[in-house]
């Protein structure tokens, strides 16, 4: 009897637990999707029923017609793409230095950089905000970008990936007279391309979804990013526009979701490498 119970637990028990966890995580997304397809009456009559009946696309037409969605998409994209490119570039260059060069205090500098992971964002917000104010970058996209042009986690992940490249490959290139730049471009980068792509996507998604920092910096409506624009439907401006808000939310979360879907394999591999070899 016991063994039966144990085997049931092994076969179904863990799956059941995982299913519950998946449900809990997916529920808000299901809720968002279904609400975006309901009209206002349905939203209040059957709040927890995930099936909109009949489904309506009015919210989406409403958003696309009356809402400067393209401006917000562009604002968000502009910031996300520059932050992503900058973080990817600096991560690869810094990791290359940490892996292939020997210099004084290398480990200390690297450990110092790791320490930055553990500084809570709330501690950084004040000084960063004051700095942006002094630089006159408040209410500009540059004020949003500047503090996030470099990423310690990115350097760490790239370093782990580069350490996985066998040393003789680089020595062979060195013997052939390759300069460090040629080694990076012709040997290292092609080999770590999947990982660079993976962290770039993570950087992009993170920047796309960022809420708190842009909220502090951006004020003018025409400068807002998508997560901030979303806020307009839920707070002061129209507390009851749930359907429209959810339609905007769905549209906002689409690009990161699609990106992740395409590149899931690379992303998981990159973290596995960091875990196994770190």
């Amino acid at each position: 009897m016991k063994t039966n119970l144990a085997s049931w637990r092994d076969e179904w028990g863990y799956h059941l637990l995982l299913l519950i966890a998946v449900f809990l995580m997916l529920w808000p997304i299901v809720f968002m999707l279904s609400t975006s397809l309901k009209d206002l009456n349905q939203v209040f009559e059957s709040t927890l029923n995930p099936l909109p009946f009949p489904p309506t696309f009015d919210n989406y037409t409403n958003v696309l017609e009356n809402f400067p969605l393209l401006t917000y998409i562009w604002n968000t994209f502009y910031i996300a793409i520059i932050v992503t490119l900058s973080k990817a570039l600096t991560s690869v260059l810094a990791a290359f230095g940490f892996v292939y060069y020997d210099f004084k205090y290398k480990e200390t500098i690297f450990n110092g950089m790791l320490l930055t992971f553990f500084i809570p964002i709330t501690v950084l917000i004040m000084p960063n905000y004051l700095l942006m104010a002094k630089l006159g970058l408040l209410d500009t996209p540059y004020g949003v970008m500047l503090p996030s042009l470099v990423d310690g986690m990115g350097v760490f992940l790239m370093r782990q990936t580069m350490r996985g490249i066998p040393k003789p490959l680089l020595e062979a290139a060195i013997l052939d007279g390759a300069t460090p730049w040629q080694i990076l471009r012709k040997v290292v980068l092609p080999l770590i391309k999947p990982s660079v792509l993976a962290i770039s996507i993570l950087f992009f998604i993170n920047s796309w979804n960022e809420y708190f920092w842009p909220l502090l910096i951006l004020q003018d409506k025409s400068n807002l990013t998508l997560p901030l624009a979303l806020q307009m439907f839920i707070s002061a401006e129209g507390g009851s526009e749930w359907g429209v808000a959810m339609a905007v939310a769905t549209l906002t979360s689409l690009p990161p979701l699609v990106l992740y879907g395409f590149c899931q394999k690379f992303i998981i591999n990159t973290f596995m490498q960091a875990g196994v070899k770190g």
Binding site: P168, V187, L191
Partner: peptide, 8 residues
């Protein structure tokens, strides 16, 4: 090299 070090 022992491992040949060919660029994959």
């Amino acid at each position: 090299f022992q491992s040949y070090a060919l660029f994959p």
